[in-house]
């Protein structure tokens, strides 16, 4: 080995060490604030519930059992825990619909921004991030004010004579969909924009030139190139909306329970921490499966620049 390459190896080794040193604070935070609590949650899910909340230090698989199954009080037969499963199903449905809606609204928005000139783009991006400045709870209550029976929207429509009676919107599925879409839209727009910004839009012209219609260009050129952004945005929206808690509660009126509310219930009034913990881990498992799907999709046949 020559002296030069030896020096190079030594330099590389030092470089690696420096990198580790620099990332130590972040790794520590992740260890203390994320991995540690997660292990505690996992541990709790295998313990027995205490009578006033908390846990008894005694191994029990009851919590996990109760997530999926329930025992009939009278004849001791086992049946699937439909109450829980339907909540899981409803949450997944809501997360799925939210992802779809943010995609439907976010895609044209991101496309619009990405095709502006550089200065205008910055202004639009700035506007997209403005909602982040206000607390989620406050924004959600503000939305409640807009759509309630005597709210802004109904008053406006009545004044304009478009409707003769206020439309009931608050505490409906529509309200939840609207709120969720509103809250998570930026999380979809930003990754979509990041993908679109890298597209050389001259290839769109090339597509038109080669007899692709507007839809053909969208389907065969833009969507495949934006795919990494679509997947990233979908994951970013799907995961938090699966555990959404505030929006279904405030805008849906808590009429239909979501996973987030169910977990909160177990740690609060339900006083069943192990069940809450098991539900949390189950929620995480769903997220993990979604992520796995993402990783497999992203590594397979994505565009080279993505």
């Amino acid at each position: 080995m020559s002296a030069a390459s030896e020096a190079e190896t030594r330099f590389e080794r030092e470089d690696t060490r420096r990198r580790w040193l620099l990332s130590t604070p972040a790794l520590l935070i992740i260890l203390v604030a994320a991995v540690g609590p997660l292990l505690v949650v996992l541990l709790y899910s295998f313990l027995a519930p205490g009578s006033y909340g908390d846990v008894r230090w005694q191994f029990s698989s009851d919590a996990w059992f109760n997530v999926f199954l329930e025992r009939d009080i009278f004849d001791d037969t086992l049946a699937p825990a439909w109450a829980h499963l339907s909540i899981f199903w409803r949450s997944m449905k809501l997360a799925f619909i939210t992802t779809l809606l943010t995609l439907v609204f976010g895609f044209p928005t991101a496309y619009f921004i990405a095709t502006r000139d550089e200065r205008t783009r910055e202004i639009w991006l700035f506007l997209i991030t403005i909602p982040f400045w206000t607390n989620l709870l406050i924004r959600t209550f503000a939305l409640q004010e807009v759509i309630r029976q005597e709210g802004l929207l109904n008053t406006l429509l009545l004044k304009l004579g478009l409707i003769s009676q206020p439309i009931p919107m608050l505490f409906t599925d529509f309200a939840i969909g609207l709120g969720m879409t509103y809250v998570y839209l930026p999380l979809m727009v930003l990754p979509l924009y990041a993908s679109m910004e890298r597209i050389d839009f001259r290839i769109v012209e090339a597509g038109y030139d080669l007899y692709a219609s507007r839809f053909g260009v969208l389907r065969r050129i833009i969507v495949p190139l934006v795919k990494p952004g679509i997947i990233a945005g979908s994951i970013l929206v799907f995961i938090p909306s699966l555990g959404a808690y505030v929006t279904p509660r405030v805008l849906g009126g808590g009429k239909s329970m979501m996973l987030g509310n169910l977990i909160e219930l177990q740690f609060g009034q339900g006083r069943n921490w192990p069940l809450g913990a098991a539900l949390s881990i189950a929620l995480m498992a769903i997220v993990m499966i979604a992520l796995l799907f993402y990783v497999r999709n992203a590594s397979r046949g994505g565009p080279t620049h993505g």
Partner: peptide, 8 residues
């Protein structure tokens, strides 16, 4: 001029 080939 830029060829505008489809990168994917």
């Amino acid at each position: 001029q830029s060829y505008a080939l489809f990168p994917h």
